[in-house]
Design a protein around this nucleic acid. Structure first.
Lengths: 216, 216, 216, 216
DNA sequence: CATGAATGAGAATTCATTCAT
DNA sequence: TATGAATGAATTCTCATTCAT
């Protein structure tokens, strides 16, 4: 019924507002630094609402992660499957990971915090979802090896280099200009153009690294 | 006087114990997650001692970073200066960064946390110390360009890729074996050998990326 | 009208479910420990229903007491009036009090909680109902004294001993077997038969205590 | 050293103040009704002090019970052992139980609340202490039976009647005068003298009940 | 130099109660 | 009549920090 639909929507709206606010706050402040109060205020709901709808702080945190992680992997796989050659797929993978980071900077931060904390807050469900991402790389590499385009390489190593570079690039954004200004005081203050080209650089490097003739 | 010496020693001992404990706790729990109580306990000193010797939580945090960062830059520079060619220097730089991460995992974690937090806790003094590291890269690259060995490249880009890869490699250590087991269940459980070879791979890649003929 | 009848029935059903659930929860958790939520859940009605039908927590509590106490006094009086002699009446009184406790253990618990709390939650209406019970004892004793069977005794004293004994007997039920096992470990584990005979013991004792020749 | 003694005293003083206040508040308000805030205020210490010294609410509650229960049993046993005959011992037992209730009304209330709650808060240590009390009765009865003075009776039954009567007497104190006024409006308002004689009445009754010729 | 005692200012969590439909 | 949604006002608990010795 329309009535029920409206009701459900109302509920879902609250949950959505909470999850969005929580994502933002957890990302910027970290789990321990985040204040339930701040999340509620930012969500525009009463603090008790969070407990009513979701539960305690930890449950909220996991809900946030689950909520946003959900379709990452699916989206990534879709993007890649639209490409023909392993090289294209790998290139797309790198661009997609970077795009996801750009599109969901908060999520990226949360993920890194999790890594640093030793993955203590992720439930096993999330761990699996991480695996899926690496598996996508594995599939691409396997296909490349089969077709004689790539040398046999550890997918986790590729994933590490790609993601690591992009993450650090992403993370250093806020201090980028300061750093660059400190490094060469003569240059125009906000020329960070060199950086937005990190993605093609990474793409090129990785492809080069996988060339069969490249003896490791 | 001997007396003063003993006093100073005792004092220094306390400070050292505190800083070591704080490093550990800050690294594993993060700034907000760290408890002064826990640090004091781990240091084997009274909680008030920390305030007496060092100051409040933030001061302690910055002391920890300052304490441990200092050596880093100096050590790095020394290592590098012992090498002759820019290539060797760059190779050494990469190996050294990796070695530092291995030797001081706690520090590495703190640094990443700082990045994720938007560098809010670093005092300006610390910021400068970060610059020093990038400057070392800059010097190497400048020398390489001068000698016609490297193409002109953004030092921060190189630093990002090197450090990013190594960091992620370092961070994923705890879940490495789980991940690998999940990826290829057939393989022997603890074969992480492929990973300790990440350093030479990064070295080779970066050198290749800097070749003058490499059009970007 | 039939319609009104159905409505009233439905309404009464809700009220009944609420009062029953509330009795249970108040009895086991106490007034402060009882949660409106728990009562609603146990009653199978919405939480708001309680406020709609009965009122706030205190009103609910008093409704529970009123609801269940009413029967008690009326039932007790009926039982006793069916007996001829004061001795029989007193004996019946004791047996009835015990039976009521057995039949309505939750109510018993609530009453005791009230006593311990200094009778703060009872409204004056409830207080009167307590009086009625003691008045029943008073009437029996007065009749006995009139007929020369009992010595003049404080009805409240008799009430206290009878009810006190039976109450404690009732309350210690849950730990009875544990206690007895602890006291004589040799005996068969669940022989609590001695206890169900507390009623005749109390009856005999009280009758004896009221003998006119018994000098106090 | 004197120094340490003073320090320890200071700590103990705080603990004592807390436990005393907690006893009072728990007794009057019950576990759920008691507010940590109220306890702290009554104790004249900071709220955090309670957590620092003792722990959370439940720990405080158990500390209170343990603290006060401790020497009850010992005290009782001492009183009784000073008497010669089983009758005297039993009489003393009854008087002592009543005296303890009078001297520690708060504790008595807590105990009863515990009974009503099904002994859920008592730790096993406390349970044992309850046993000890009943064991004291058991010893008296055994001695009486041996000497041919008492008929063989369940000690728990005697304990139940004695304690039950005294408890109810104790509990009804606050409403006593109101109740009596309601029962016989003609009598002088505050003549509760008949009640303070409940102890001898109980003593007489119990002794009578245990006479060997009394067939149960 | 060192520390055990103490606390104020918050933070998480709960719960009776009301609102809107 | 009935209920799911929502919340304000506590309440428990924590933690960085200071005090007194």
């Amino acid at each position: 019924m329309a009535d029920a639909g409206i009701r459900t929507n109302k509920k879902d709206q609250s949950i959505r507002k909470i999850l969005n606010a929580a994502l933002l706050v957890f990302a910027t402040q970290g789990y321990d630094g985040a204040r339930i109060d701040a999340i509620a205020r930012k969500a525009g709901v009463n603090k008790a609402m969070i407990y009513y709808r979701i539960g305690n702080k930890r449950a909220l945190y996991q809900a946030v992660i689950h909520d946003i992680y959900q379709d990452r992997a699916a989206h990534l796989r879709r993007e890649i499957q639209s490409k023909a050659t392993p090289e294209e797929k790998l290139t797309t993978y790198i661009a997609s990971v970077a795009a996801i980071m750009d599109a969901h900077p908060h999520f990226t931060r949360i993920m890194i915090r999790e890594m640093v904390s030793g993955w203590t807050n992720f439930g096993p469900a999330i761990f699996e979802e991480v695996c899926v991402t690496v598996k996508i790389v594995q599939e691409i590499l396997d296909e490349g090896v089969e077709k004689g385009l790539f040398s046999k390489t550890e997918p986790l190593a590729i994933h590490t280099m790609v993601t690591g570079s992009l993450i650090l690039n992403h993370l250093t954004q806020p201090v980028r200009s300061q750093l660059m200004a400190a490094l060469n005081p003569s240059a125009p203050p906000s020329d960070t153009s060199g950086f937005n080209r990190l993605v093609p650089q990474v793409q090129r490097l990785v492809i080069a690294a996988l060339r069969p003739e490249a003896d490791i």
